[in-house]
Design a protein around this nucleic acid. Sequence first.
DNA 1: CGAGGCATTGAGTGAGCTCAAAAGGCGTGG
DNA 2: CCACGCCTTTTGAGCTCACTCAATGCCTCG
Lengths: 263, 263
Amino acid sequence: MPVSAIDTLPEQRRPDDRPRLTELFLKGRGRDTMTPEDAATLEDSIEEVRTIPARTIVIRRDERVRHSSLLLEGVMCRYMDDRQGNRQIVAFHVPGDFVDLHGFAMRHLDHDVATLTPVRVALAGHDRLERIVASYPRLTRLLWFSTLLDAAMHREWVFRLGRLEADGRVAHLFCELHARLAMVDLVREGAFRFPVTQIDLAEAAGITPVHLNRVLRSLRERGLMTFRSGEVHILDLDMLTALADFDPSYLYGGGPTLEKQGA
Amino acid sequence: MPVSAIDTLPEQRRPDDRPRLTELFLKGRGRDTMTPEDAATLEDSIEEVRTIPARTIVIRRDERVRHSSLLLEGVMCRYMDDRQGNRQIVAFHVPGDFVDLHGFAMRHLDHDVATLTPVRVALAGHDRLERIVASYPRLTRLLWFSTLLDAAMHREWVFRLGRLEADGRVAHLFCELHARLAMVDLVREGAFRFPVTQIDLAEAAGITPVHLNRVLRSLRERGLMTFRSGEVHILDLDMLTALADFDPSYLYGGGPTLEKQGA
DNA sequence: CGAGGCATTGAGTGAGCTCAAAAGGCGTGG
DNA sequence: CCACGCCTTTTGAGCTCACTCAATGCCTCG
């Protein structure tokens, strides 16, 4: 359903918003270990800010990419289609996520990237990232780490799809979104906006839209959560967590350096 | 079932096997873009070679890690257990894979790592990798890329579990293994060794061992492939590929620089 | 030779699917 | 402003794939 064409509305970058654009990057995951110089360097890698409409394909698989997108506002996703056109969403992205940073090291992607809502993204040029890798090892490791966070989420999705039943999958999905959005301060009293369709959720949970609808009804009737017109209300996080077998530690709250045990 | 305890048998490193240990790393995926100096530097990061028995847990989740393992021989896996003890394998590893290189940038892992067969691994110290990041940007990007390859495989597993039915999942798994093992020259006339149990395969495919067994029978009866006593024979790769909706491009044969299309 | 793990097969059950239909929401054009 | 159309959401009915439970055979190893 996403129409192609990158209808971009380039914005003017004002000098005074310099330290602003990347402020959500790795927030709650070790951003604070970044030196002011690292932060400024990262900020300098942003060449442009774009506004993109909802339901737009931003990058097609196999396409050569020359910049990476830091999501500032809105929701994006990455997905793959099978031969019959059935879609599997492999990642949701929320503000603060470097959506396609892996495109820097991979040169081209193995999946499509699209917006689900209208978004604002900050574009980091790969030539500038190249300079970071050449001269800022600590920042380089943080960028690397952030792509590994995505990999950790992928693993958790594998777990979700491999081991959980439909209600657990949906619960897990919302537990993850709740935790991730909370880290960038987008949750208010257990509620957050996530304006996607039930079809999108079904394509991420690996179930049919019809069954997803039934699962949502069940979760609502059990008093665990509601999803209505893009608004999520978590009513019983403990029960939802238990149903999802959810353990947020894969999100690396605190960042890479936070140790759990000795040895 | 894997017993804990790292029963390691440290080997003596002979000076003459210097250029040998890392020779499978990124083979078929841009290893050739590595300069001799890069290759030597990588080789120098290896501190030790270990032999580890089958069914041994090598790294437990949350454990602080100080070196990363390049698999030389054998099969390893990464997995996560749910609260009831059901296991989901999230990755298989074959020779040439840097099994837990992500542990370098993450400091601790969100899953366990175990051997499935007896293995030989080369251990790269994180302090030496740190020096690579500080001084060898091109090699750093290749290391980064190799962790992103794992992420790409994770995504494909998400697709497999989210969109395929049991026979497709199993077919996909074997298509991937076939392609990956072929890259490191471990396939002979469509046959390769993969000495794991049907239980392991089931834990990777997200189905029960009983059903996996039925699927294997079906694939065998349809003349697509056989799996017997750790030996895989691909009999009809085209049909298997079609059944699996398999497209090997996510394995980045040729490496990061190989472009597919312009723009 | 016995024990334990793995592989295999059967029978019955159930979660999630397909097919189908209808209601609600929203934007566009007459 | 209303009507239409399209997409999304919702619900029902029947079916199927994969599950559970169970039993048996096989193979390896002590």
